[in-house]
């Protein structure tokens, strides 16, 4: 399945309503029998007594969208998927809010379960997004992915 480069970015947090609507949009696609979703949520990590209040995301958006397009094509060629949606926040996302949403659908469960973890790992490793962890006292540190 070949398609155009899509914009994965959403300004601010990804609302649970949008996630619900995204699921609802697939009810008309009746060849689908399985969905798998990954939701990344901002964690209130504590570092040296200070707690993360929010993460501010920036990105090199042109490269990020292009790399996500490549990751998407790789997944479609490797797994039997009907559709795939990737969203990532830009700007400030508060603790407890959703910043990352990956959604894959297929006729059956195996392709969605197998592809989801791989997709999330590839996006984290290859997409130029930068997280700045903001503490309650206005200081910050740069997020490091594990």
């Amino acid at each position: 399945m070949k398609d155009r480069v899509k914009n994965i970015f959403i300004e601010g947090p990804i609302s649970p309503i949008k996630i619900g609507e995204s699921i609802a949009h697939h009810q008309s696609k009746t060849k689908i029998g399985a969905h798998a979703l990954f939701l990344g949520q901002v964690r209130a990590d504590t570092v040296e007594g200070k707690t993360v209040e929010a993460i501010e995301y920036t990105a090199q958006t042109e490269i990020a969208n292009q790399v996500c397009h490549e990751i998407r094509e790789e997944a479609f060629s490797q797994y039997e998927l009907s559709c795939m949606h990737i969203y990532h926040s830009l700007g400030v996302v508060k603790k407890g809010e959703i910043c990352f949403f990956v959604f894959v659908s297929s006729g059956h469960r195996t392709p969605v379960i197998d592809s989801l973890n791989e997709l999330v790992n590839k996006i984290k490793a290859r997409v130029p997004v930068f997280g700045k962890e903001l503490f309650e006292d206005q200081s910050h540190q740069w997020k490091v992915n594990q």
């Binding site: 990344g40 999330v120 130029p128 930068f130 490091v144 992915n145």
Partner: peptide, 24 residues
């Protein structure tokens, strides 16, 4: 808008320096 090795010839007009990625 394309990540390249440091030995690449500099022929573009837009150069980006990208620190470790930390999306998600």
């Amino acid at each position: 808008n394309s990540i390249e090795s440091e030995s690449s010839e500099l022929k573009g007009t837009l150069i980006d320096l990208l620190p470790p990625f930390s999306g998600g």
